[in-house]
Design a protein around this nucleic acid. Structure first.
Lengths: 255, 255
DNA sequence: CGGTACATTGAAGGGGCTCAATCCACGTGG
DNA sequence: CCACGTGGATTGAGCCCCTTCAATGTACCG
């Protein structure tokens, strides 16, 4: 599905564990608990919904493999893609904390997910506070992505938006070892980009052409190549701190 | 600052307590713990910053009185207002969970705030899991507001955006007893609305004029009157469930 | 009385949309 | 092996929503 991760890890380590453990040093016991949380798995086929807007859930899910979207369809058919869920992400926040899910989560590719009942998650706060705090933090990180996305759509031009969108994807995929220095593989259609950024398909097309002509981005056969990451970051005013500079270590040490 | 709350409560109850207790039935002990969290207060003057982007914090804050903004200023001076913080809201999520705050939080009016150290918040998960879960949920609610805001800016017209924005404010203010059936008092400038919704000031002006001509909204002397809430909700496709229909009771019962 | 903050209005322009046609790769069934 | 359908990319023409720039009005305030 993507380039191999740069660092080899034991095959039993899931993307969630890898992501979370890349920030905090966990004990073997904590790692084991974390892995056990993900022991039940389920396969969801491409284009089916992992979560459906309006239905009621009493589990969260961890996305173990594949890519999913969080999206809302408006009455008149317009669609807004809120976010893209990558391996290691929790699915169901914040929607699942409501009586009925606020958004749908369709699988963009075949997905392997692992349900985590609320009750277990809540119990974690007692028995594994460091783990709980880490999971808790990951929700804060997701909220920060929404906020950053909001700035994107509210105050940036189409060119800046697309650049920012691709840079965020690159950075997030790098964290979980699914992207190399400047490229990644993902079935991003222009319709998807448009629905994420509030643009029409024709205009996404023209914007991508512009980026191609400026030799900044190439998309070929579902492989996205950011030819000049520096220039793109300058263009989009991209600050990666909201994806990495979190203060979990301090938080956890205090508890 | 606004119409009187519809239900009389003991004067010692803070807006946070009132808001949280409106969803879940708490014991007297829990109420007391919740109140004690807010025993230290600080006054922040209008136009000063409660939180400054880039600085480091080890407390969250509860907004006890007044109105604050969460916002980001881009390099070229464009501003995006992410959200409006009302009495009873937590301030500092998600920004304060990062090494340096991601956004600034300027006080729109004089504000009374109460700092809550991270350490205490984390400790709460042990000793008062119901309270902790409730606070936890309020973060989910905030994330949902970001997502809803994103849909607004990404896929709705200026008219729909303004209508949705005002409806959300009305609903949130009603929850804390600061709005009556169809109006509230708040110093919303057209610049603020524009920066929240990704619109220019002149266009906000024209949009408001349209709403006024259609006899849907009047803004006079900082008092916002939604003359026809039903029609506005239909226009904006406003669904209040993301502000109220949360499933905390079930969550807490399980723990 | 001048300064500041905000609302209002007009003119002109552009960024992005809508509508529509075309093209291409791919899969599927006859 | 070809015909056909489908999903997606691409391109063009026309236009409109919203922006930018600029001027004016109007409170309020030290």
């Amino acid at each position: 599905m993507a380039p191999q991760p740069p660092t080899a890890k034991p095959f039993s380590i899931t993307p969630l564990t890898r992501k979370i453990a890349s920030f905090v040093e966990f004990s073997p016991v904590e790692i084991e608990v974390l892995e056990n949380l993900q022991s039940t798995t389920r396969l969801v086929r491409r284009n089916r919904e992992i979560v459906s807007e309006g239905r009621n859930y009493d589990t969260l899910f961890v996305l173990l493999d594949g890519i999913a979207l969080r999206s809302r369809i408006l009455r008149d058919g317009r669609r807004q893609v809120l976010n893209i869920a990558l391996p290691g992400d929790f699915i169901g926040f914040p929607g699942c904390f409501f009586e009925s899910a606020l958004y749908s989560i369709p699988a963009l590719t075949d997905c392997v997910i692992s349900p985590i009942p609320f009750a277990i998650l809540v119990g974690l706060f007692d028995r594994q506070p460091r783990l709980a705090a880490t999971i808790f933090w990951s929700f804060a990180c997701e909220a920060a992505m929404y906020a950053e996305h909001l700035i994107d759509v509210g105050r940036r031009s189409a060119l800046e938006r697309v650049a920012h969108f691709l840079l965020e994807l690159l950075t997030r995929l790098q964290v979980i070892g699914l992207a190399d220095e400047r490229s990644f593989r993902m079935p991003v259609t222009q319709e998807l980009i448009g629905d994420a950024l509030g643009l029409s398909v024709p205009h996404v097309n023209r914007t991508l052409r512009q980026l191609r002509q400026d030799e900044l981005v190439r998309i070929e056969e579902h492989v996205v190549i950011l030819q000049d990451v520096e220039a793109l970051a300058a263009l989009a005013d991209f600050e990666r701190s909201y994806l990495s500079l979190f203060r979990l270590p301090a938080l956890v040490a205090q508890s």
